[in-house]
């Protein structure tokens, strides 16, 4: 667990591996090849890499056109611009015709850090989740990111993979078998369930450890595929523990917290506490400072769990 890597690092590396076995892999970038790590693919496959310049909307619609010629297009940029600026291109030209485009931007969430609120997307999961037919994956570590990016190729249709800049502890390893749509129980418990996604998974594990010291048995479940949601796994755990905390580096509106609350309200209502950005914009700062400022630490997760238990 000592080595830490960012999920974005998995992007360029995995693209090279995919490019070697699949000649139809084409990578589009929007002037951020170094930051997103697609520059690695560019070096090995210059004929299948196209820098679109600072023009994310054109990048997305071109990817749709490329998909009609049999290419499997990966589109880069930062999550803010891929899902925000180019939302309607993704919605109307990629997803509406169900074209085979993989949207894998990096620098999602507030852990972008010092660049500040303009670059910290806290809405992207909501934006992608609401689109019919879009698969939405938020990897929890470097290895899960690698597996998810590779699996995205096997899914026929649009896939969103949310990648980040922050370095994260390793949860999985090279042998991890990522199955899209499947929740993973990382720690079993009986008093409360913590559903977490992305960077909040490792902090949820820390929180569970700390809760155990206080005599609270917390179950930790990694929801890396937010759509399609693993309804059964979520309901099953909610039935078992009767209390649910949802933790994500995203607005509490529209993300995993909303998805879990929507599901449980209909199928098995239990108390739910959402740990996320509380409907405000981000600001500049170091990632660790920001996580503390916005209430996204393991401490905040523990507090939310204790709150549900009346402690």
């Amino acid at each position: 667990m000592s080595e830490k890597r960012a999920t974005r690092e998995a992007y360029g590396e995995t693209l090279i591996e995919l490019g070697r076995v699949n000649p139809n892999i084409v990578v589009l970038e929007a002037d951020l090849a170094k930051s997103t790590t697609t520059i690695k693919f560019k070096k090995e496959f210059p004929d299948r890499f196209f820098d679109c310049g600072v023009a994310e909307q054109n990048m997305m619609a071109m990817a749709a056109g490329l998909a009609t010629t049999g290419k499997i297009c990966f589109t880069g940029s930062f999550a803010m611009f891929a899902t925000g600026r180019a939302f309607e291109q993704v919605r109307n030209t990629i997803a509406y015709p169900s074209l085979n485009v993989k949207i894998c931007p990096t620098h999602a969430g507030i852990t972008v850090g010092a660049d500040g609120g303009s670059h910290q997307t806290i809405e992207d999961i909501a934006l992608m989740r609401v689109i019919p037919g879009m698969t939405v994956i938020v990897p929890a570590d470097y290895y899960e990111a690698k597996k998810a990016i590779a699996k995205a190729v096997e899914i026929d249709g649009p896939v969103y993979v949310r990648l980040g800049r922050a370095t994260l502890p390793m949860i999985f390893d090279e042998d991890y078998d990522f199955v899209p749509g499947k929740a993973i129980v990382l720690r079993e418990g009986t008093d409360v369930t913590i559903f977490a996604t992305g960077i909040m998974v490792s902090s949820s594990l820390v929180a569970a450890e700390s809760l155990a010291k206080d005599g609270i048995s917390a179950e930790v479940i990694n929801i890396s595929t937010i759509k399609p949601l693993d309804d059964n796994a979520i309901i099953e755990s909610a039935v078992k523990t009767g209390r649910v905390v949802v933790a994500e580096e995203h607005s509490i509106i529209g993300g995993l917290g909303s998805a879990v609350a929507e599901l449980l309200c209909e199928k098995h209502p239990v108390p739910v506490a959402r740990v996320g950005i509380k409907d405000v914009f981000g600001r500049s700062g170091e990632p660790a400072e920001l996580l503390k400022y916005y209430g996204l630490t393991d401490e905040d997760i523990s507090q939310a769990a204790k709150g549900l238990l009346g402690k």
Binding site: V26, D47, R48, F50, Q57, N58, A61, M62, A63, A64, G65, L66, A67, T68, T69, G70, K71, E88, Q89, N92, T93, Y96, P97, L99
Partner: peptide
């Protein structure tokens, strides 16, 4: 390709031309 939202079909056509060139 599905069109209707203006401007996007043109951009998609550029993508098609690029794919065919590749």
């Amino acid at each position: 390709i599905s069109t209707g939202s203006l401007g996007m079909g043109f951009s998609a056509a550029v993508g098609m031309a690029l794919g065919l060139k590749i």
